[in-house]
Design a binder for these strands. Structure first.
Length: 183
DNA sequence: GCGACAG
DNA sequence: ATCTTGTCGC
């Protein structure tokens, strides 16, 4: 009935204190299948609707996807940043393209993510003894700055707080919607 | 041809 | 992404 419906959530935080400022969400139709390398075409439309509801203009966006670390150097984080003209960082939980050596086990350790001879991102240990995440440039942020800012958004968990909280919220919205739909 | 493949 | 059982680290 509503299997093609999706949710998008954005939560704005202060930096570096990471105190919540504002949160917005939206629901809408998903018109594009998930195809690796084409995630932006599936998720950007709803994301833009959510960002349009924001009353404050963000200084930085952390995207739950790759940026430069994409076969065409054009992951969702790049789309997002270009369209909104906001500095953006790609923070992905798993690999799309590239090869790497695992970084050291301590929080903050990182190693380059290579596609041939090119550094396309950094593999970053955001929490000691936990598998790393993949950080890459989205828009108007250098890789070194992307790594530093991502790390500063990690409050003891693997996933940066803004992404972790937005992900948690969007799942709650999903459950709430389903439960109301079946009542 | 085969495998790999963000969310 | 989701589902599910067991295991490990803090």
């Amino acid at each position: 009935m509503s299997e093609d419906q999706g949710f998008a959530a954005v939560i704005l935080y202060s930096f570096p204190k990471l105190e919540e400022i504002e949160r917005v969400w939206c629901q809408g139709e998903i018109r594009f299948p998930y195809i690796p390398g084409f995630l932006a075409f599936r998720e950007i439309p709803l994301l833009l609707q959510a960002f349009a509801k924001l009353r404050h203009c963000p200084d930085l966006i952390l995207a739950d996807a790759h940026g430069w670390a994409h076969p065409k150097r054009a992951g969702l984080a790049c789309h997002q940043g270009v369209i909104l003209n906001v500095p953006t960082i790609g923070c992905a939980k798993s690999l799309l393209v590239g090869k790497y050596k695992l970084p050291g086990l301590k929080k903050g350790s990182n190693s380059p993510l290579m596609d041939g001879k090119e550094v396309i991102g950094h593999v970053l240990r955001t929490r000691t003894n936990v598998r790393p995440i993949f950080v890459s440039c989205g828009h108007r942020v250098s890789l070194a700055t992307a790594v530093r800012l991502t790390l500063e958004c990690c409050d003891g968990y693997r996933i940066p707080k803004p992404l972790r909280q937005a992900d948690r919220w969007v799942k709650q919205l999903r459950i709430l919607h389903t439960s109301i739909h079946n009542t």
